[in-house]
Amino acid sequence: MAGSMKAYRLQFPYCAHPGCTRLGDHVDHIVPLAELTKNDHRRYAWSNYQTLCEPHHQQKTTADALRGKTRLR
């Protein structure tokens, strides 16, 4: 799976955040793994990946964590 993320980042090197022109530092899951079931095909599908620079990755990770605190379990 790590190889798949590396290949994704090579193909999509720039941050996907609207208006950002920085090179990406991270391949991020659009829908976090914690919100997907074990059998969900999106877990490691490229359609659920996005490249993000460090500031935008931190911003999304914080938002995901805050949403996780209020998510029904």
Rank of each mutant, 00 (worst) to 15 (best):
C53D: 08
T21K: 07
V27M: 03
R42Y: 01
T37L: 10
L33Y: 04
H57D: 09
A65Q: 15
D64H: 12
L23Y: 13
W46H: 14
L72F: 09
A2H: 13
C15L: 05
Y49A: 04
A65D: 14
H41G: 01
L36V: 06
L10Y: 08
Y44S: 12
Q59T: 04
T37E: 15
T62L: 11
C53I: 00
D28T: 06
E54R: 06
H17R: 11
M1N: 09
R9F: 11
Y8K: 05
H41C: 00
M5S: 09
N39A: 14
Q50F: 01
T21P: 01
T21N: 10
F12P: 01
R43Y: 08
Y44C: 07
A7V: 06
R43D: 10
I30Y: 01
A63H: 08
F12C: 06
E35G: 07
H56L: 03
L72M: 07
V31P: 03
H26I: 01
G24S: 03
H29I: 03
G3Q: 10
A2K: 12
Y44H: 14
Q11Y: 11
A7Q: 09
A34I: 04
N48Q: 09
D40Y: 03
Q11C: 13
L72R: 15
A45C: 11
T70W: 02
Q11P: 02
A2C: 12
E54C: 09
K69V: 06
F12R: 10
A34P: 00
H41E: 03
P55N: 05
Q58D: 14
D25H: 15
A63I: 10
R42G: 06
R73H: 05
R71V: 07
N48S: 08
T21I: 01
Q59D: 12
R22Y: 09
N39L: 11
R73P: 00
G3F: 01
R9K: 15
R73N: 04
H17S: 11
C53R: 00
E54D: 14
S4L: 13
H57F: 07
L33I: 06
D64K: 03
L52G: 15
L33T: 02
C20A: 03
K60A: 10
R73T: 03
L10P: 00
P18G: 12
R42M: 08
G68H: 07
A16P: 03
V27A: 02
N48K: 06
M5I: 07
P18H: 06
Y14R: 08
A7E: 10
G68S: 14
D28C: 10
H41T: 05
Y49K: 06
I30C: 01
P18D: 14
N39V: 10
T70E: 12
S47G: 05
S47I: 04
A63F: 07
D40V: 01
C20L: 00
W46I: 03
G19A: 08
G19P: 08
K38P: 15
R73E: 02
A45P: 03
Q59S: 11
Y8E: 07
R22M: 12
P13A: 13
D25F: 10
R42S: 08
R22H: 13
T70M: 07
P18A: 13
